[in-house]
């Protein structure tokens, strides 16, 4: 039985990483354009609650995920309007998105509190692959979205580093003035990538709702995963493929407190172990706040800076 629970821990770490990868992928794409959206937690919650409500009404998972994506686009468009259009402080607007998303999701989620999930995302049946020892449950025991997420991370990496629009995206984050001088539209690029990033964040929330959570439970539904996703961006030094590894690591540390309890391993109280991912997140967010550390970690050079042509 001992190996059984560790298997479950690894499998769960990879499963939970799906949300982290999707959300941090959204944040990476947004931040690469020079816009920082701290509202991930609020976006996850809005994605989760929208998905639940639409699935409750229609019984259709795809419609639910689509609705979540639409909400993500709308919310991040508000962020883009404030920060790109009106050049407001990105940190303040992002924090407002967290509070707005949390409050609004609580409000519209009131009637579905505690209800059973209308649809559940289940792992794929992959025949003999699923029956392989260890690899079966850990690698081949997931739902289709987990695998699509890996593909998406690969796709995002290819897009950023191997295509012309991707080059423009990176240039917009590093040297928007150059993009502007070459005739590119900084505002256009920032708008589009902020909205695509936002869609990935709400999609992450909706997936978490249907695949991991047991019920809608207001602000506690996502348990601070959005903040972890933000830390993961730094951890992955703004590279999509590195986010996969980091996400599994964070996923493991989210999962391991119960495993240690079940295995009667009491090196540290489980409550302390459960703090680890958040402690790392705190440390990373503090690091992120100094320009020097950001440069060292490979952050987009103009991250968080509104682009103003005449003030160049």
């Amino acid at each position: 039985m001992n190996s059984n629970i560790w298997l479950l821990t690894f499998a769960d770490a990879i499963s939970i990483a799906t949300t982290l990868i999707l959300a941090s992928l959204g944040a990476i794409i947004t931040e690469r354009s020079g816009v920082i959206n701290l509202g991930v937690e609020g976006m996850l919650l809005m994605g989760a609650v929208t998905g639940f409500i639409v699935a409750d009404g229609t019984g259709n998972l795809w419609l639910a995920l689509f609705a979540a994506v639409v909400v993500g686009v709308v919310l991040s468009a508000i962020h883009a309007a404030l920060t790109v259009g009106l050049r407001a402080n990105q940190i303040v607007s992002g924090l407002a998105m967290v509070i707005f998303g949390t409050g609004l999701s609580q409000f519209i989620g009131k009637p579905i509190e505690g209800d059973p999930l209308p649809v559940i995302i289940r792992p794929l049946e992959l025949g003999w692959l699923s029956d392989l020892p260890f690899v079966g449950p850990v690698v081949f025991g997931h739902d289709v979205f987990t695998y699509l997420t890996w593909v998406a991370a690969g796709g995002a990496s290819f897009y950023m580093h191997r295509t012309r629009p991707g080059l423009l995206l990176r240039a917009t984050g590093d040297a928007p003035a150059t993009v502007d001088a070459q005739g590119g539209s900084v505002a256009h690029i920032r708008w589009v990538h902020t909205m695509v990033g936002g869609a990935l964040m709400t999609l992450a929330g909706a997936w978490y709702m249907f695949a991991r959570a047991a019920a809608w439970n207001q602000a506690a539904t996502t348990n601070g995963i959005g903040w972890i996703a933000l830390a993961l961006v730094v951890f992955a030094s703004w590279r999509p493929l590195r986010a996969i590894g980091g996400a599994v690591l964070f996923g493991f540390s989210l999962q391991v407190p119960f495993t240690l309890q079940a295995q009667q391993i009491s090196v540290l109280p489980p409550t302390i172990v459960a703090m680890f991912p958040y402690l790392i997140t705190l440390a990373v967010l503090v690091l992120l706040s100094t320009p020097r550390a950001r440069r060292l970690l490979g952050a987009p050079k103009m991250l968080g800076q509104p682009f103003v042509r005449d003030e160049r």
Partner: peptide
């Protein structure tokens, strides 16, 4: 420029108030 920033800040503040009220 300054004026636009003020408007933006007001927007953000309004969003926060609405959210708090909803919650």
């Amino acid at each position: 420029m300054k004026r636009r920033k003020v408007i933006a800040a007001a927007f953000a503040a309004a969003a926060m108030i609405v959210a708090a009220a909803c919650g």
